[in-house]
Design a protein around this nucleic acid. Structure first.
Length: 268
DNA sequence: CACAGTGTTATCTG
DNA sequence: TCAGATAACACTGT
């Protein structure tokens, strides 16, 4: 599930419910999700501190843990989360509710708990001691897809011979787009996902930019890519699905290494 | 039982 | 260097 709109939703969960609360206890329910730290180190770093906020970077979520009262000579630790394909972040307003079987980490705070839940464990949890360590964990990324400028998109796609599908899903080209979102954007922009990304005409690139922005803003508002009437996402998992726009049968291919649903009649 | 899947990375091949 | 294919991670639903 988690692409940019979902992670943006998780960011809002933290901002609206957890921000400003003191972390009483860190419960590591599955230490195999800890990628660069241990349960002991995570507890030592976070317990007693305050949830200072939440920031999204592409599909990453950063939760800085604010000062515990001391002078804080070494800076504030930052919890770094990636949700893979099945991760979620929940706010549970009552403490000590029975855990969900896929709950991997609980941050127990005043008045509730923040729960990192993940079925497949394809990504995980990092601890950064400062902003520099955050950069090392996340690594290089293209410009964030939300608020992307037309000039940024042009620069990102310039010279690429790869397919649009592969290019848009590459976090080093543009950060935040996943499989579902990319299919929806290319379908709404009427662009063939196999087209070389660097060879779009001016008006095509402009249409792609406008569509990307519109699909993203609508999805962020919903906290997911919505299965809206008239959207590809509404029908993409149906068996003999047909294009919501032209009614002709949709095609399923493997493009850029991922399942791609598109309309060979509309998308050129 | 086989296999694909809303993600990412390493490795191999052309 | 670039791009595509494949495997690996771990688990569930079809």
């Amino acid at each position: 599930m988690p692409e940019l709109p979902d992670v943006e939703g998780f960011r809002r969960v933290v901002a609206e419910h957890a921000r400003g609360r003191r972390i009483h206890e860190v419960r590591v329910r599955d230490a195999s999700l800890l990628r660069n730290t241990t349960a002991t180190a995570l507890r030592r770093a976070l317990e007693g501190r305050t949830v200072a906020g939440a920031e999204r970077r592409g599909k990453w979520l950063l939760i800085p843990a604010g000062g515990s009262g001391g002078s804080g000579g070494s800076g504030e630790p930052i919890l770094v989360l990636h949700f893979g394909m099945t991760g979620e972040l929940h706010w549970v307003p009552t403490r000590d509710q029975p855990p969900h079987p896929h709950d991997r980490l609980h941050l127990v705070a005043d008045g509730g708990e923040l729960r990192y839940r993940d079925q497949r464990k394809l990504q995980g949890i990092w601890l950064a001691g400062d902003r520099g360590q955050v950069e090392r964990v996340i690594g290089p990324e293209g410009p964030d897809a939300l608020g992307l400028r037309a000039a940024d998109l042009e620069r990102a796609l310039h010279g690429l011979r790869r397919s649009l599908k592969a290019a848009l899903m590459d976090q080093n080209v543009v950060a935040g787009l996943g499989n579902l979102l990319t299919d929806e954007i290319l379908w709404q922009a009427r662009l063939d996902p196999r087209r070389p990304a660097g060879q779009l005409g001016r008006s095509e690139r402009s249409a792609l930019h406008r569509t990307l922005g519109r699909v993203l803003r609508t999805s962020v508002r919903a906290g997911r890519v919505p299965a809206r009437e008239g959207w590809l996402t509404a029908v993409r998992d149906e068996k003999g699905a047909s294009c919501p726009r032209c009614g002709r049968p949709l095609r399923r291919d493997r493009i850029g290494g991922r399942r791609t649903v598109w309309c060979p009649s509309c998308q050129r």
